[in-house]
Design a protein around this nucleic acid. Structure first.
Lengths: 252, 252
DNA sequence: CATTAATATGTTCTATATAAACATTATTAT
DNA sequence: ATAATAATGTTTATATAGAACATATTAATG
């Protein structure tokens, strides 16, 4: 039996029994108590259970897995796909900066079960999503845009100047082959620019509807991001056009 | 302190901190670990907590009952009363810093309808409450305590050093005539101290159950706050005792 | 297919927490 | 005041957790 299988069986027991005993599990699953302990360690880090003395109980996070709806033009499914590819760039020990947005929110959801990752964000909805997780979460301070939950302004930018991250997931309103990446307000573009500056690597996550669009204020050129992740709705024509400017990954 | 009181304090810690440690509790509550264990036994049988190795976490049942913390000691009504008196200190154009906490959350709720006020906070639940308002809201950055939604740490304190506010609403876990104001963790007390420092005036808001209590780490002396607002449950005896140390307002 | 690297599991040992039994101290009732 | 009861402290034995190391299994590579 694979570790994955065994852990799945542990979770099953946990769900049906309400609590499990290390010794009992070790007998049933034919492994030593130590192995069960190590399984508990793994599952606890994923917030799936709470270890007790001699056993474990289900975690509260597991009880109410509520996924509240997002409003968006593109299906959630596509954003989830993009997010799934995005998180494959993240590995243990990394410091990851996550921009505000709906696609980036999906990234945060997927990262929630990871371990050993520091997440930094300027979006309090992302922060809310990460409540209850075992991640190290840093919120950038700043002015709150009360309609969207985004933090921005000079305070936010100043804080960014004092930190550095390995990876930045950039969200975008508009992407254009010659105009580059643009946003509706100068504040936001200035902030995103600062975020790019402070990151070793920037990955742009944007669904296909954002391509060939331009907004008011320029963030950066396409050359400034290392990778673009988008969905399979991107036309062949656009795909070729943008491939010359940046590495494009189609999430499917 | 009676066993009932002590158990109530354990539950309070559990609600605010998310998890408690037997040794730390035994130090704070001045009893042996064995006594805490016996308290855990009692509380576990009442389904109020789950024992872990070396400590305890709140039971699932309690997590979902948001009312638990409020219902256990003092009614929401009393916190609302305190908040109502608190906001009378706020006038247009002011910059107000709001500490994390349930009473301070009520203050934020009342301020929501104001317009010409700048609110600064380290609590993302307060931030969430102020979403959609016309207020100028500033979130202090920092490390997120994912169980409670509180921001803290050196980053938070550094940001505080670069700003200044007119008024600070301080929340407290424990108030004692000789020990002053204390909190369960050093991180929190350090942050609160910095908040006090950066404010022209500090008002302590705390329901009557917080009086004559001590927690682990000292924030400041009672002389360091200009006013204390509490509820009418405060006994005559305590009222007189604390009146000598600070101006006390009974919200009724 | 053999060999290496990586992962998973088992074993042993030590530190720590738990739990039981008993002793002591507070509370309460009579 | 005294006895009875409850609460807490103390000591000791047992069990668990966790670290460190050894072994086995699986995956990856040439």
């Amino acid at each position: 039996m694979s570790p994955k299988e065994r852990r799945s069986k542990i979770m099953e027991s946990l769900a049906t029994e309400g609590r499990v005993d290390i010794i009992q599990l070790s007998v049933v699953l034919n492994v030593t108590p130590m192995t069960i302990r190590r399984d508990f360690d793994v599952l606890e880090k994923q917030n799936k259970l709470i270890r007790t003395h001699g056993g474990a109980v289900p975690s509260q996070a597991l009880i109410h897995e509520k996924t509240f709806e997002l409003k968006s033009n593109i299906s959630v499914q596509e954003k989830k796909m993009i997010a799934k590819h995005a998180v494959s760039f993240v590995s243990d020990g990394m410091t990851v900066l996550i921009d505000s947005g709906t696609t980036t929110l999906e990234i945060a959801r997927l990262l929630k079960t990871h371990e050993q990752i520091t997440v930094i964000t300027n979006d309090i909805k992302i922060a809310a999503e990460l409540m209850g997780s075992k991640l190290e979460v840093i919120i950038l301070g700043g002015r709150l845009q009360t309609e969207t939950g985004t933090l921005y302004g000079s305070l936010t930018e100043n804080i960014l100047k004092s930190i550095h991250v390995d990876l930045f997931f950039l969200g975008a309103n508009a992407i254009h082959s010659s105009f580059g990446i643009t946003t509706p307000t100068i504040d936001k573009s200035s902030l995103k620019r600062e975020m790019i500056r402070t990151a070793t690597e920037t990955i742009l996550v944007a669904d296909s509807t954002k391509f060939n669009q331009k907004a008011f204020s320029k963030v950066c050129d396409l050359e400034d991001v290392s990778t673009i992740i988008t969905d399979q709705q991107l036309s062949e024509e656009l795909m070729e056009k943008y491939s010359e400017l940046a590495e494009i990954i189609i999430a499917e």
